[in-house]
């Protein structure tokens, strides 16, 4: 196919975490990436490196990805020490090589957290997030037999605020960013969405307790309010969710007594 880009190729050095599986030790391995177009996305750059590796008979680098447009939450690379790389408010798949310079050295690692064990290379097991949602991330309604949608008026301000929380893509960057590997931002986003909406009220306190209990069982660390999670969140989920969850959690304990 024709080369459409008018921009020059860049040359990069990559240091990539390679780990055969959960039971072996990993290490950083150095690769050269010599034909990188600034128009490429970060994952497309890795695709090109992988094609080279396969041609050479090496194993390609494994990483999670799917939508490649910043919404599925699959991609999860720790790039030069930051979850999803140097830019604010985007995921790894939305990062483009024009954010780097010719000659850069780029270190690529998986999320680091006890609750997210490495499966292979840059792929981690984030099923702990699912289990927290199983514990209470829902409103208990069955299919059918619900009222007409407009019977539940919700102010635009509240609906917008609930959507801000619900925007979380469950990627785990908050955990990866936190020195304690705490999952508070993730959990509080779901708790907040439901706590803000009238539909979420009946189970409000039960929900927060169930989800926090599961979070603790999964081995995530404590929140010490450093705010790194908010700073690195690709969807810019606000710390105020954590405050809201804490309030509900304490209220839940009082109501229980």
């Amino acid at each position: 196919m024709m080369r459409l880009s008018i921009l020059e190729d860049m040359k990069l050095t990559l240091k990539v975490w390679r780990q055969k599986n959960a039971n072996t030790k990993g290490q950083l391995v150095t690769y050269k990436a010599d034909h990188v177009s600034p128009d490429m996305s970060f994952l497309e750059m890795l695709d090109v490196v992988n094609e080279d590796l396969i041609h050479k008979g090496d194993e390609p680098i494994h990483f999670d990805h799917d939508c490649r447009e910043g919404i599925c939450g699959a991609c999860s690379l720790h790039i030069n020490g930051r979850p999803h790389g140097p830019k604010q408010g985007i995921t790894t798949c939305q990062l483009h090589m024009r954010s780097f310079n010719d000659g850069d050295v780029i270190v690529i690692e998986p999320w680091r957290a006890a609750a997210f064990p490495v499966i292979r290379d840059l792929v981690t097991d984030r099923s702990a997030f699912d289990r927290i949602q199983h514990a209470g991330g829902y409103i208990s309604v069955n299919t059918g037999g619900v009222p007409d949608a407009n019977c539940i008026p919700i102010s635009k301000v509240v609906a917008d605020e609930a959507l801000n929380s619900a925007t979380c893509i469950g990627c785990g960057a908050c955990v990866a960013a936190c020195k304690n590997a705490s999952a508070m931002l993730f959990v509080s986003a779901k708790v907040s969405q439901m706590a803000l909406l009238p539909q979420g009220q009946p189970e409000r306190y039960q929900r927060v307790q169930a989800m926090v209990t599961q979070m603790d069982q999964e081995g995530f660390g404590n929140c010490t309010n450093t705010g790194a999670c908010e700073a690195e969140c690709p969807k810019e989920i606000s710390l105020s969710n954590i405050a809201r969850m804490n309030r509900d959690y304490f209220a839940a304990n009082i109501f229980k007594e």
Binding site: I139, V141, P147, A149, A159, L163, Q193, L197, Q199
Partner: peptide, 11 residues
């Protein structure tokens, strides 16, 4: 159904 589940549609 979706509203009952807490889907925050535009209002």
């Amino acid at each position: 159904q979706c509203v009952a589940q807490g889907v925050p549609f535009a209002r």
